[in-house]
Design a protein around this nucleic acid. Structure first.
Lengths: 195, 195
DNA sequence: TCATTCATGTAAGCCGTTACATGATTGT
DNA sequence: ACAATCATGTAACGGCTTACATGAATGA
């Protein structure tokens, strides 16, 4: 029974890490010392929490995956007064994977999912130039979007099948506001990083 | 075999609609005339697309759900030159469900998931006052966030387990920029709607 | 006495994605 | 000759959430 489960899990492994897995890896890298899943969650809520926050259940799953992929070690610590705990620590393979991820350009130009911002959070562990380059791509993607939105706004009868009214105009202006804010932020960030 | 599948689906029904289902329902309501899934997708890409965009596969699933829930009718149209198609049209029960959704305050105060903006898109089909009220809640949620972020920024040593550096400061400033933009937009929108 | 902290997990299920299938028709 | 348009779907699976379980220790 146990073995059967093991096998299933093992065969499923090997695909490349998810966003969440990289995020956890990034934290392990940033923290340095071994840390339990439980404590990690607290760190998250005080740091990356505002960008990205998985449920605790998922966190435990992700940590297991990282260990299976050799990106983290797990060490069991027995306690008397408290339940036993597992301490996780990034491996050198983990650091390499993280650096690789931070390096790689994202081909998806969907700025909202915003992998870029997450990467930037862990920027100190990666290559500065690669991040600046990705930041520029992020900026451009949003600028493009912004242009599209503004074109939509400025047409009086955008398309045959038109749904526009007072309310849709409002939501469109929301999109514009957000996109503009993103572009401006990206510009400032770029200056900051290249200065 | 077929019957078995039918049963499974039927028993699973009955839970209240998902966000995506409401979104499709909103579109059916806005459009008025019967429309095929295929055409719906096009409308989406030209309208709500920038807020929310399901895959075509999911769209077909959602339409089936709506019919099963009695919120939409489906009428088969046979064609010679083209594949047959199904035309969907909102029912009165559907309109009622939609109005109810637009009315209801959302208890989750997570502004990012942004149900509010989606609701606003369909605002013309709902009660103006209810939407203004929800818009205010949205504004407040973001204002609260903004305050939290600014507090984080202004502390030099935020917490024991501190991760802050040049990069995290940058991402924090991203959060601040976004939150501030959201608050400002919400204020303007509120004025617009109450004027 | 009762809630909270510590610490990890299982089970069930939802929402959604990508890849693939089908097959005639129209445009380049 | 080849690609795109029309039109709908199945299969497989992935990521994530919520609810639930456990059980001692500490604090109000």
């Amino acid at each position: 029974m146990t073995t059967a489960v093991r096998e299933e899990i093992t065969t499923r492994t090997k695909s490349q890490p998810t966003l969440t897995e990289y995020a956890v890896l990034g934290l392990l890298g940033q923290i340095g010392e071994p840390i339990s899943g439980y404590d990690l969650q607290k760190v998250i809520s005080r740091s990356v929490g505002y960008i990205w926050q998985p449920s605790k259940t998922q966190l435990y799953v992700v940590l297991r995956h990282l260990v299976e992929a050799g990106l983290s070690t797990r060490r069991e610590v027995e306690q008397r007064a408290r339940p036993d705990k597992q301490l996780y620590r990034i491996t050198s393979a983990g650091r390499a994977a993280l650096r690789g991820w931070l390096q790689r350009d994202e081909d998806t130009s969907d700025p909202d999912r915003s992998t870029l911002v997450l990467k930037l959070f862990f920027g100190s562990q990666g290559d500065r130039l690669a991040l600046v380059r990705q930041l520029a791509a992020f900026r451009d993607a949003y600028a493009l979007r912004l242009a599209t939105y503004e074109r939509m706004r400025d047409k009086e009868r955008p398309y045959e099948n038109d749904l526009s009214d007072e309310f849709t105009a409002l939501t469109l202006s929301y999109g514009i506001t957000r996109a503009r804010a993103a572009v401006e932020w990206a510009d400032a960030a770029q200056q900051q990083l290249t200065r």
